[in-house]
């Protein structure tokens, strides 16, 4: 740390830094631990991929089977996130605005996908939505649609893992919202629908977009809850994380790494988008 009084930082900052102990120690430990556990291991994937050369890298990530897997993963993850936006917003709205019996249980249930291990969710969803399951059976009998072991099954699993994100980003914003704006709109003659879409809606867009991006990011990389219900047919119901695992088991480390690097780059970009969205969401909340 430098000892000269900095001109840029407010004097109060400087005061804080001097008074509280442990800055060097905790930041140093944080940086070392972060590097050893996260940054150096992650960079090994990029190093390995850079050893492939562009031609080999491009060939590894553009085979029909890999492209099909990207298609399945991104398509179902997008759809699942979109479904979570619709129903997640409804859940958030009912939890904030209405009183009804069982509300606390419902509120707690929203967090279950965070806490329930993915493999447990996976076997349970596969059983429930399988041809003999409580839900899969009737759906098959009534509509002839198979849920488990199709892309629909993947969608169900991804809705499950992404479910908490939209609810938990929209809920606090909704709770913070001043009811007076809605009353003012109503007293000025707006219908309830107009009020919802013109007054409440714009306040929620940023948090809904954040929830969508979080649910999507989580769904793209999801493995445990999907493999049991997906059926895992190459070209049809094979997701990217599974394909990486299959390549590893065939000792095709280069292929696995190339696919993983594409996924990592997309994850980083998503993280940046999410950060930007959250800044937007904060800006609209502080206003």
């Amino acid at each position: 740390m430098n000892s000269r009084p900095t001109a840029t930082s407010p004097s109060q900052l400087w005061f804080k830094r001097r008074v509280l102990p442990g800055f060097g120690l905790t930041l140093g430990f944080t940086l070392i631990y972060l590097s050893l556990i996260v940054l150096i291991p992650l960079s090994s994937a990029f190093l390995k991929a850079s050893g492939l050369g562009w031609g080999a890298f491009f060939r590894a990530v553009s085979t029909p089977r890999v492209l099909a897997a990207y298609n399945v993963s991104f398509g179902t993850a997008l759809l699942a996130a979109a479904i979570n936006v619709v129903f997640g917003s409804i859940v958030a709205w009912t939890l904030v605005r209405y009183r009804f019996p069982g509300k606390r249980t419902l509120d707690a249930a929203v967090d279950l996908p965070f806490a329930l291990p993915t493999a447990v969710a996976g076997i349970s969803l596969a059983t429930l939505y399988g041809p003999n399951g409580w839900l899969g059976g009737p759906i098959l009998a009534l509509t002839g649609i198979k849920v488990a072991y199709t892309q629909l099954g993947i969608l169900v699993a991804l809705i499950f893992v992404g479910l908490p994100f939209v609810v938990r980003t929209v809920q606090p914003v909704l709770e913070d919202l001043d009811l007076e704006f809605e009353e003012a709109a109503a007293s000025l003659g707006a219908s309830r629908i107009q009020t919802i879409f013109r007054v409440v809606g714009p306040e929620l867009y940023a948090s809904i977009a954040t929830g969508f991006a979080l649910a999507f990011a989580r769904a793209v990389g999801e493995y445990g809850s999907v493999v049991f219900i997906a059926g895992n047919m190459p070209m049809k119901t094979e997701i990217v994380p599974l394909l990486i695992l299959i390549k590893l088991e065939q000792y095709d480390y280069r292929g696995a790494t190339a696919i993983a690097v594409i996924m990592l780059v997309i994850s980083f970009l998503l993280l940046l988008v999410i950060n930007a969205l959250q800044r937007w969401s904060n800006a609209s909340r502080i206003r």
């Binding site: 291991p41 992650l42 090994s44 994937a45 390995k48 993915t118 990011a217 793209v220 990389g221 999801e222 493995y223 445990g224 990217v240 994380p241 599974l242 990486i244 695992l245 590893l248 480390y253 696995a256 790494t257 993983a260 996924m263 990592l264 994850s267 980083f268 998503l270 993280l271």
Partner: peptide, 13 residues
């Protein structure tokens, strides 16, 4: 943000 499968992969690398 990183897929769990990739988390395993990097340690194998």
């Amino acid at each position: 943000a990183v897929s769990p499968v990739i988390a395993g992969l990097i340690y194998i690398l």
